[in-house]
Design a binder for these strands. Structure first.
Length: 644
RNA sequence: GGGCCCGUAGCUCAGCCAGGAUAGAGCGCCGGCCUCCUAAGCCGGCGGUCGGGGGUUCAAAUCCCCCCGGGCCCGCCA
């Protein structure tokens, strides 16, 4: 049953094919535009036929399509015209009967799979936080979106590879290494002293060192205002961690004439792969990543590959790409260093290729600034290395598409990287590198800053959510064992956070309200988990469903009918959400389904139903809802719960 | 100055790409519902000049133009 979308999809596809053969609208357009009607009396689904009729008599089109659908042997759907819309109404007896017998044969609710050649190799690169401070809520949005996209595309039938890019080459990493050098100790030791996770310890050293270096710089330049601010930041960080260790770092930094130079030296030597910087950077970054993995696991996020930026440099891949770039003739000297002449690339490569122009997303009338490729000291820049990494992602995974889940503020560098790829003749890669952009997450009342140690960590948030969820679970199930309740609380907490970050569109700036996410009584992930638990509970009490007894005629009751029609749309809805990279559509759909189910739950008992035909039909409906929620929640990375 | 994104109910948002049927949810607020499958639920009520103005169209929240407000970017940071 590969690619089979169930009783509803089959009928919609038939109507679409008939519209196509009648020359009214393509099947694809029909499936894209057909949607639930605003009012029940019109039918279940409607399609704005008047847009496509082009003066043809709509009633005439209707009767032709009707004949066509009938000729295809498709029953259970009736067609009508109302105010220019082609409306479809399903026969719940036939549709429901079909669903019941499918279940009997072991059908599983699932996303419609793409067929053979349509299945692509897709790389999703996401999270990729620098290993210099713990993950915070912004990274959680990235991870939730990225992981959900990966899950949806995989369920759609694509071959998906999840990659994490470890940025260990830049200045940030050098700063933290400089800090540890002065302490002459390891992240693990600092973590033991501070009694924190190792990535939190690294974040503390990073913030302290960075601020101390900035302080030294401000002192040199005699900027009074900055000095005061930086001094108070240092004092705050010192108190929050270990004053002794803090004084060691601050003292060492301030004793130097030019601490910046020390940082640059570390950066330069690491990029060249020299010891001891090489093992120092690696061991610190590795320790931070260990902390990240622990946090991400709680959110159900895993990666197939952890790609080190330094490996891109040391393997010679970067040098090769730089060589290609310089031979391309698209580089020029800009402000005393080498830059990619983006204007020339646009003029000579992009303008003449309308497909490329479209896919590369070049804003009209926008002059793309030249892309500086090297610092004056000869080291490379983040985006320069990212050009090489982009090629690596395509090559290593034999990727057809690469999706980069990267914050919207990196829009320009992402565009410049696509231009660089085009410049060296990698037009296919340029056109298939997708920047999935998302807006920043703000905290009410304050800005986040890793450099100053100003952030709410994901670990803290998870802990708080777990505690709150545990309290709620215990209140509802006093008899539940400690460990079971704890486990449920963990899933509820993670589900609440993931759902809240994926539900709004990615381009909505998000103000993260902790209290709101932890309030489980809203329209949230826990609400869906709860609905799933209710459905599970019914099925558990009901026992095995006797499909042969189930009477689909009982689906004529309006609420049951609504659930049937809504639930059976899942294979199509989820497929579309995957194709359009819109997890928020899936989230909205699941909420809708849960709403209808809960409404029904309130007034129509399953296990107290006397009539066996009705009872088994209802139980089948419950199973349909449960399976649908289970599949959809899993795609969103929210664990479906049997009990809560 | 230039480019992009956002602006819809008191709050958070969906609908805009592909114009059409009385603009939808949730929260909050007010009032109800647990001898009956889990009340993290359900029912009822209040609440909108779709930021403003112009244009295209039989039809505009949706398309085009101008303006206003907020955000991001235009670094030899990432």
């Amino acid at each position: 049953m590969e690619g089979y979308g169930g009783p509803l999809a089959r009928r919609l596809e038939a109507v679409g094919s008939c519209l196509e053969s009648e020359g009214v609208a393509s099947r694809e357009v029909f499936l894209r535009l057909v949607d639930k009607t605003p009012r029940e009396e019109y039918g279940d689904y409607g399609f704005p036929l008047m847009r496509f009729a082009g003066g043809r008599d709509l009633e005439g089109v209707l009767s032709k399509v009707k004949d066509c659908v009938e000729a295809l042997g498709v029953n259970g759907v009736s067609l009508s015209i109302h105010r220019g819309f082609l409306n479809l109404k399903f026969n719940e007896d036939i549709i429901g009967g079909e669903a019941i017998s499918l279940y009997e044969k072991g059908w599983r609710v699932d996303v419609i799979k793409v067929g053979g050649a349509e299945a692509k190799n897709i790389v999703v690169e996401h999270t990729s936080a620098n290993p210099v401070h713990p993950l915070h809520i912004g990274h959680a949005r990235n991870a939730s979106l990225g992981d959900t996209l990966a899950r949806m595309l995989e369920a759609r039938g694509h071959r998906v590879v999840r990659r994490y890019y470890v940025n260990d080459v830049g200045r940030q990493m050098a700063v933290v290494v400089y800090g540890f050098k002065m302490l002459n100790t390891t992240p693990r030791d600092v973590a033991a002293t501070l009694k924190t996770k190792v990535d939190h310890a690294i974040g503390w050293v990073y913030a302290l060192t960075h601020t101390a270096v900035d302080f030294a710089l401000a002192r040199k330049n005699m900027i009074e205002e900055d000095l005061n601010l930086l001094a108070s930041t240092l004092a705050r960080l010192r108190e929050r961690g270990s004053p002794e260790l803090a004084d060691k770092i601050i003292g060492a930094v301030l004793s130097l004439e030019d601490p910046e130079a020390e940082v640059s030296k570390i950066m330069l030597r690491y990029e060249m792969g020299l010891e001891p910087e090489k093992s120092l950077v690696r061991s610190i970054a590795e320790a931070a990543l260990e902390g990240f993995r622990e946090t991400l696991e709680k959110l159900g996020v895993e990666f197939d590959y952890w790609d080190w930026e330094s490996d891109i440099v040391w393997s010679g891949l970067l040098a090769g790409v730089l060589n290609e770039l310089s031979r391309s003739g698209f580089t020029k000297v800009h402000k005393g260093t080498v830059a990619l002449d983006t204007a020339a690339v646009i003029r000579d490569v992009v303008e003449g290729d309308s497909v490329l122009r479209e896919s590369i997303k070049l804003p009209r009338g926008f002059e793309v600034p030249p892309m500086v490729l090297y610092r004056s000291d000869g080291t490379t820049l983040y985006w320069t290395r990212d050009i090489a990494y982009s090629i690596y992602k395509f090559q290593h995974s034999k990727a057809d598409r690469v999706i980069n889940v990267v914050a919207v503020e990196q829009k320009l560098p992402q565009l410049q990287i696509r231009l660089a790829l085009a410049a060296i003749g990698r037009v296919r890669e340029a056109a298939n590198m997708i920047h999935y952009e998302y807006e920043m997450v703000n905290l009410p009342g304050r800005a986040m800053s890793g450099r100053r140690g100003e952030y709410v960590t994901l670990d803290e948030l998870l802990e708080e959510a777990e505690a709150r969820a545990f309290y709620e679970v215990k209140a509802r199930n006093p008899d539940l064992e400690e460990e079971t309740a704890r486990n449920i609380a963990r899933k509820v907490a993670a589900g609440a956070i993931r759902f809240s970050l994926v539900q709004p569109g990615a381009l909505k700036p998000l103000t993260f309200d902790t209290a709101k996410v932890l309030n489980f009584e809203e329209n949230t992930g826990p609400y869906l988990q709860y609905t799933h638990a209710r459905a599970s509970n019914i099925l558990e009490k009901h026992g095995p469903i006797k499909y042969e007894l189930a009477n689909p005629k009982t689906y004529s009751e309006p609420l049951r009918r609504n659930i049937l029609i809504t639930a059976l749309a899942y294979p199509m809805i989820s497929a579309k959400a995957a194709d359009e990279l819109r997890p928020e559509d899936l989230a909205a759909y699941l909420l809708k389904l849960a709403d209808i189910f809960n409404k029904w739950y309130q007034k129509d008992s399953v296990i107290h139903e006397k009539d066996p035909g009705a009872r088994e039909a209802k139980a089948t409906l419950v199973k349909l809802v449960k399976d649908t929620l289970s599949s959809g929640l899993t795609l969103l990375g929210v664990t479906p719960l049997e009990r809560m």
